[in-house]
Design a protein around this nucleic acid. Structure first.
Lengths: 120, 120
DNA sequence: TCTACTGTAATAGTATAATATTACAGTGAG
DNA sequence: CTCACTGTAATATTATACTATTACAGTAGA
């Protein structure tokens, strides 16, 4: 299974697909000039309609990350890692602010980070 | 202005309203047995339809956080701080995992936390 | 050349969120 | 009592996300 979708999330499915594929590229689980799964294959695998995957791929192409090869599939072009970094950091910043607003202590956040990254 | 809404967010407006009010209660900007703004007043202030605010208040009442007093408004009952804490920490955990997946370094996250909480 | 896969397009239908609008009933201050 | 505020309810409309389905054209391997 390439990845899964959270159908209870407020984030639209087509956005989740885009984000997961961006992650795959950053993590080099798919490399440049390689094909990603076909629209129909991925749609069946994650249990969504092919139109939804098609939308994700179309938008990723508009962002210059993948490119369609008609009749063959979509290949990976590349990704602006700095942009991905900035977007995620900004998302992170918002939730840290929100946590502070809720009177959550700094040490509680650090504990979570240590759990995930390791305490070293 | 009590608070603002991000109309570009994927999070529904009625959810954003619920979250903001929960924050206000935790931060004691509104206290127990106090009235929160009327449906119409808040709707006008944040620029949404009164039905949307009505939905938020209805759901907050179902959660036992506020209570309607017909003809008068809604008063604050109280809030389960532990539940709020757990929910936010879980949300935080997800984005930390996502950041790690994107090869963002631990120190980059710590930097953001220090910016917001102070470096002490 | 077949055939089975690709992407692409168009149409229709459903669910949800949000809006706009109107209406009605309860509350409380003057 | 009156009036201006409350909550509550119902209806219609729009936009978006998603599904279902059918269709057509390009690609590549047997």
């Amino acid at each position: 299974m390439w990845f899964t979708i959270d159908f209870h999330s407020h984030v639209p499915v087509y956005e989740q697909i885009k984000n997961k594929i961006k992650e795959k590229i950053v993590k080099k689980e798919v490399n440049e000039n390689e094909f990603i799964p076909s629209i129909r294959t991925l749609a069946k695998e994650i249990g969504v309609n092919l139109n939804t995957v098609a939308r994700s791929y179309r938008e990723l192409e508009q962002e210059g990350i993948i490119q369609s090869v008609r009749g063959s599939g979509y290949i990976v072009i590349g990704i602006d890692k700095d942009k991905i970094f900035d977007e995620k950091i900004e998302e992170f910043r918002k939730i840290v602010i929100s946590a502070k607003n809720l009177k959550i202590e700094k040490r509680d956040l650090l504990k979570v980070i240590d759990e995930i990254y390791g305490g070293e």
